[in-house]
Nucleic acid binder design. Structure first.
Lengths: 215, 215
DNA sequence: CCCAAAGGTGAATGAGGTGTCATATTCAGC
DNA sequence: GCTGAATATGACACCTCATTCACCTTTGGG
C-alpha cells in the first residue's frame, strides 16, 4: 500500500546475479532446494533466511548473491515447482485414449505427486498471500493447458459441450482438495477408490436419472 | 524456543478474561470485528495488533484483556465465521426438493456469500498455516454436515451410490475454487452460468453419453 | 603461474512488531 | 455519591530477522 515496496514488480529482474560459473550454479541450486524444504516444513513466515542458508550449507550473505530477497526466491520456487508438476502430469496423460481416461490418469498422477512432494502444496498456498500474482500465475498457466485439452476433447466429441473454463476451475478445485485430504492429511482411502469415485462422477454424473441403472 | 515465552501454551487458558460487563462484551466484539477486516485485507502476518486495535478504536493493551495473543483471536474468528457460513448455507438449502436442487442452491449461495464476505476466504486459508487444526476443524465440520446430506440423498435414491466421503471433498474443492476464481478474483462469468455448468456435470457427467464411453 | 572476476563469509545494523505493566478511567451496586 | 472491581491506556522493553557490507577465498582463462 505504501510507496517503498512498489519496485518489487517493476521489471522482470533477472536477479542480482545469475551464476556465471559451474560452482555458482551449484550453489544457487542448493539454496533453492533448501528453500523448498524449509518453506515446506516451517512455512514462509516462520522460515528465516538463516534456516535456508544453514540447510544449504552456505553463509547468509551468499543467499543475496543469487536472490534479491525472501519474496523473490519464493517466486522462483513456485515457478520451478509449477513446471515440474505440469511436466509430470503431461507425461502421465499423454498416452490416454480419451479425455475420461486422461482425467483418471491425471488425477491419480496428481495425488501421487503430492504424496511424494508434500512441499508443493504448502509453498504454493502460502505464496498466495505473499504475492497473489505468483499464485494466480500458477493456476492460470495450469488452467490454460487444461482448457486446451478440454477444448480438444469437445471437438473430438469425447465430452459434452459446456463451459469448459468453468469446468477447468471446478476440476482443479476437486484435485486440490482431494490431494490435500487424501494425499497429505490422511491416506485412509486408496487412490484407486478416489479415482474410481471421480471417474464415476465424470461418466454418469451424480444424479440417478431414468437412463442410469441402479447398482 | 528459549525460556521466557514458554508460558504461552502452559494450560488451556480460557482466555485472559471473558468480559464480565456489557461494556466489556461490546469491546471484545469490536476487536473481533476489527480483526476480521484487518486480517481480511492485510493478511494475518502483515496485520499488526496495533492495526486491529486502531481499527477497533481501543488501545493496544486492551487487546490483551480479551485475547491471549494474535493466534487466539484468529482461532476465535475462524470458529465464528464457520458458524455463519454453515448457517447461511443451511438456510438456503433447506427447502430444496432434492439433492441436485440443493447442490445448485448451495453453490449459488456459497458464491454469493463469498462475494459479500470476501474476508472469509483469506482468513480461513491463512489460518491453515498458522495452526492447521483450526482449518481442519472448519472443513471437517463442514464435511460432516455435507456427508449427512449425501447419505440421506443416497437413501432416498436421489443420487447414485458411491463413496460419499470422497465426493464431499471433491464438491468442497469445486466450490472453493469456483468461489476464488469467480466470486473473488474476476466476476467475468455469471453465477447462473457457473451453477448451470456444474449442475449439468451432476446431472449428466462429463462424458458424451450418460451410459458409457464410445466403443 | 597469475590475477581479475566470481563466489563466499558472518558480524553488524536497524526496522518492525509482540506482549507487558504501572497507571488512569469507568462501571455498577449499595 | 462512594468504592472496589473491571476495563482501558500507551509507552516501552525486548526480540526476531531480513538485509548490508567490507573483506577473504576460489576459480579458470591466458
Amino acid at each position: 500500500m505504501s510507496a517503498p515496496n512498489a519496485n518489487a514488480n517493476a521489471i522482470v529482474d533477472p536477479g542480482p546475479g545469475a551464476p556465471k560459473t559451474a560452482r555458482g550454479a551449484r550453489t544457487r541450486a542448493r539454496i533453492l532446494k533448501a528453500a523448498e524444504s524449509t518453506f515446506g516444513t516451517l512455512g514462509y513466515h516462520r522460515a528465516g533466511i538463516s534456516d535456508i542458508t544453514r540447510d544449504a550449507g552456505v553463509a547468509q550473505g551468499t543467499f543475496y548473491n543469487y536472490f534479491a530477497g525472501k519474496e523473490e526466491i519464493l517466486r522462483e520456487l513456485v515457478r520451478d515447482m509449477g513446471h515440474q508438476v505440469r511436466a509430470r502430469l503431461a507425461a502421465e496423460v499423454v498416452n490416454a485414449r480419451d479425455r475420461l481416461e486422461a482425467e483418471e490418469k491425471g488425477l491419480r498422477a496428481f495425488l501421487e505427486y503430492l504424496h511424494d512432494n508434500p512441499y508443493l502444496y504448502r509453498v504454493l498456498q502460502e505464496a498466495q498471500f505473499v504475492d497473489e500474482s505468483i499464485y494466480r500465475e500458477y493456476y492460470e498457466a495450469f488452467g490454460r493447458g487444461y482448457l486446451r485439452m478440454l477444448a480438444d476433447a469437445t471437438r473430438k466429441g469425447e465430452i459434452r459441450s459446456g463451459n469448459n473454463e468453468v469446468r477447468v476451475w471446478a476440476l482443479m478445485g476437486m484435485s486440490n482438495f482431494l490431494g490435500l485430504r487424501y494425499a497429505l492429511w490422511e491416506g485412509d482411502v486408496s487412490f484407486d477408490e478416489i479415482v474410481a469415485t471421480i471417474s464415476d462422477l465424470f461418466r454418469h454424473g451424480l444424479a440417478i436419472d431414468g437412463l442410469d441403472r441402479k447398482p
